[in-house]
Design a protein around this nucleic acid. Sequence first.
DNA 1: CGGCGTATTTACAACGTTGTACCAACGATG
DNA 2: CATCGTTGGTACAACGTTGTAAATACGCCG
Lengths: 331, 331
Amino acid sequence: MATLKDVAELAGVSVKTVSNVVNGYSFVKPENERKVREALAATGYKPNVGARNLRRGRTGFIALMVPELSIPYFGELAGGVITAAHTHDWSVLIEQTQGMRDPEVATLASLGPHMVDGAIISPEALLTDDLTHNPTGVPMVLLGEHALDVPIDHVGIDNVQAARIAVRHLISMGRNRIAVIGQNPDRGTATQRLAGYHDALNEVGLTCPPEYVAPAVRYHHRDGAEAMARLLALPEAPDAVFCFNDMLAHGAVRAAAERGYHVPQDIAVVGFDNTEHSKYSLPSLTTIAPDKAALAKAAVNLIHERSNGDSSPVQDVQIPFTLEVRESTTG
Amino acid sequence: MATLKDVAELAGVSVKTVSNVVNGYSFVKPENERKVREALAATGYKPNVGARNLRRGRTGFIALMVPELSIPYFGELAGGVITAAHTHDWSVLIEQTQGMRDPEVATLASLGPHMVDGAIISPEALLTDDLTHNPTGVPMVLLGEHALDVPIDHVGIDNVQAARIAVRHLISMGRNRIAVIGQNPDRGTATQRLAGYHDALNEVGLTCPPEYVAPAVRYHHRDGAEAMARLLALPEAPDAVFCFNDMLAHGAVRAAAERGYHVPQDIAVVGFDNTEHSKYSLPSLTTIAPDKAALAKAAVNLIHERSNGDSSPVQDVQIPFTLEVRESTTG
DNA sequence: CGGCGTATTTACAACGTTGTACCAACGATG
DNA sequence: CATCGTTGGTACAACGTTGTAAATACGCCG
């Protein structure tokens, strides 16, 4: 609880001199510097971050808004953001929204300009209107979601292209009854991935029935399992499925196995996100692997530039990705 | 950026009156309250949290220190902490340590008393010395780790008993060559779980060779896979393995499968933590399931009580757990 | 030795908020 | 009518820090 004042009294100098020593400013007489440093050590002084930031006009925090940290993809992403934030001396405040609009709006509203220096948000259900006049008053970056037509920086991967590559891969292994799991008109990424799916089919003149486009409200294992169950119950079941995230895919794989289908022999599965587990599952999962570290870094860097007054046009940063081919498509 | 002063000028009242309205204090003439509310709306006033906290002497944040958010267990835990924190109007600041001592010590040191109102820490490599004189000056709660002999509140499960139950379960299915994966003298929880393992064996007069105690430095899939590979290469391979977390278990299952072993027929596997994925893996994983929501809630509540001046003796809160029996032990 | 430029230090204000103490107006009471 | 209590409102200081500008000390030149 020692303050600059306490240290100053002990060292016999002014408060400002101590402040100068602490901040490495200006010229301080060696003699005094020594005394101040001793006093600092003796009192165990720690700067009051709140007061400092009040004075400096920054907070030292950035916010990260995600649906749920318990979703591996967001856990991994958050880890990357924290790491990247540290390079700019930022700590990360994490808020969860369960992917629902009300909490998303509420969270944005609570992020006063005085609470954080910036916000990285992963919108799930936000509407364009919710973002048109920046509700936080602070630099923002949108992750993943690209469909919102708002003048806010965005970082993500080319979803259309990624989906195209995933489906091409299925086609190249000779599959021609290719389904998708995860259609959801409320999710911009879903719409884009679906477009990529159709592109890839069209490229080779393949057509698949509309029942092959399986919707999913949430993107959890359970949803993938349920969707797969419905697909396999079709008169003509698909021989490959492209899932819009890895959890859907793992759920789908399990549902298939429960019904006696072998992956990939009977039905091949591709996921999206490349979460840690997908490398070790049985079968291991072929999946689109975005460079999550690069994603986090780019987002944090954008916030950093903006908060330093950069007012260049809105940016849309594309992050590289790869297709990780694993057992679920190599039989 | 509107401040109380701006609002006050617009409404034609004093700054303090606006403050009173904002905080619902005292008696304000309806007439004035109306004017103030109008001015508040007109200016879009948002309180400056930093200034408020400087004045009030609290920060509105608590810190959560974990090894890595990308580890599903910690992702799930963090989600629970955030949820619990919200019930006390706290936001959560998350720091990662990679489970290494230096970052752990550094993080604790950086948590000034003015940065957060409390800290929930999940120590991995911290030594008793690092915690003897509370380095944060703020209420702390230790998670999971119980072996550190320090006067700090602790929340966790009864690791010895949990391990005992897990191993008893393996014994009850007729296995008698039972190994463990995850031994690590630097981890208190590992030591406790190992004790429970030995307890369970002793109860039925079973003895297992020391090679059946497989060490693991980190607790990732890879470590589990490597340990399992070594176990299966023994002259007499085990017919069951108790892994000290789910990731080790999943890695072990995969390693077994790669060598043609069937789980659970040839070798049964039990995990620890019950991460989301374990319900959907192939085979689904039998595991010890701590009540993570309760864990998070208890930790946050402890911080809350302590920060309200509660100075009762150090507490050790035991959180309930169950054994979730799934396919990896039911053949 | 007076004066001047540079090195070092300091007092003061300010960041935006809230607690304290005080002031004003009012009606009610003796 | 003087006093008092209640209700409503305000001025001021303070939280701990740092920027600004002004003050002091130092060394050197003429």
